[in-house]
Amino acid sequence: MNPKGVRVRESRDSVEHPNSLGIVFALDVTGSMGAIPRLLAKEQLPKFMKVLTDCNVADPQILFMAVGDATSDNAPLQVGQYETTAELMDQWLTWCFIEGNGGGQGTESYELALYFLAQHTEMDCLVKRKKRGYLFMTGDELPYPALSKHIVESVIGDRLDDDLKTEEVVAELQKTFVPFFVIPDQDRRKKCERRWRDLLGDNVLCMDGPEDVCYVTAGAVALREGLVSNLDELAKRLEGTGVPHKQIASSMRALTPLAEALGRNGSSGEREAANAEPGGLKNLIQGLFKK
Rank of each mutant, 00 (worst) to 15 (best):
G102H: 02
G102P: 09
L39T: 15
R7D: 13
G106R: 10
E141R: 04
I36R: 12
E260T: 14
E277N: 10
Q105Y: 15
Q61L: 13
P60E: 12
D13T: 11
L114N: 06
A26R: 05
R38Y: 01
D208V: 13
Q78T: 08
A41V: 15
N283G: 11
L45R: 10
T217C: 11
E141S: 05
K131Y: 02
D158V: 07
H150W: 07
L262Q: 06
A218E: 02
G157L: 06
L160Q: 00
S154H: 06
A220F: 01
N283V: 12
Q286V: 09
V24R: 09
E225D: 10
G280Y: 05
Q247E: 01
M89S: 12
L117R: 01
L160V: 09
G31R: 01
E272V: 14
Q174P: 00
A171C: 00
A26M: 05
F181M: 15
K191Y: 01
L88K: 12
L117H: 05
D59Y: 05
I285V: 15
W196S: 14
N19S: 10
K130F: 11
R132M: 14
I98G: 09
D59W: 07
I98F: 02
Q61W: 11
L258M: 04
F64L: 07
L147K: 11
D185S: 10
R237I: 13
F97H: 10
E211V: 12
D161F: 00
L227K: 13
P257R: 11
V216N: 04
E16F: 01
D69H: 01
L227C: 03
R194Q: 13
A58L: 08
V178D: 03
E211C: 08
E122L: 00
D54C: 08
R271T: 15
T85I: 03
M1K: 01
T53S: 11
N101I: 05
I36Q: 05
R189A: 06
R129Q: 02
Q247N: 06
S148H: 06
T241N: 01
V8F: 09
K191T: 15
C96N: 01
L284G: 03
P184K: 04
K128N: 03
D202Q: 09
I98K: 03
R38F: 00
D163A: 11
A171D: 12
G240I: 04
K50S: 14
R7K: 10
P18S: 06
L238Q: 03
R224D: 07
T84E: 15
Q105I: 15
V67G: 05
M252F: 01
K128E: 13
V216L: 07
A218I: 04
V79N: 00
L255K: 11
T107P: 08
L63D: 11
